[in-house]
Amino acid sequence: MSDQKPLELILARNLLSSISTPAFLVGQEGALLFYNEAAGALVGRRFEETGTMTAQEWTAAFGPFDDNEQPIPYDENKLTKSLREGRPAHGNFRICVAGNVHQDIAASAIPIVGPDGSSGAIVIFWPLPEDEETKAAAGVTEQSEVL
């Protein structure tokens, strides 16, 4: 019998599809289960084009990248480590966006914990301004920071 996703993931996807803030829905093992139109516009590919992606697939395609422009493995991402402990997290990252250019973003991740335990996470993100003065004025830092 074909089953369905946990209800909390279904409701999370419905929420993300209804907002204009770029957002990913990540499941257990880091699979990218869904991203909304705003996220699709930022990364230059609609979810309908990519479908579900494994952690390895989406980190290779979208990042995040380290200072040497190398993809950061999903298991080594600070957000991943925090989410696996059931805690929300926030950090700044460099990702690949539309036009195959790199873009600095801030990302906040919220764990989704259902009656059976952790189901995944919502990751919302937004581009950071490019010039340093504007960054300082916006109060953002270069370093990832776990809440």
Partner: peptide, 16 residues
């Protein structure tokens, strides 16, 4: 939140 016509089967509450 999303029209049923736009959802894959396993993303529909109650489908399974």
């Amino acid at each position: 939140g999303a029209p049923l016509s736009q959802l894959e089967d396993d993303w529909i509450s109650g489908f399974g």
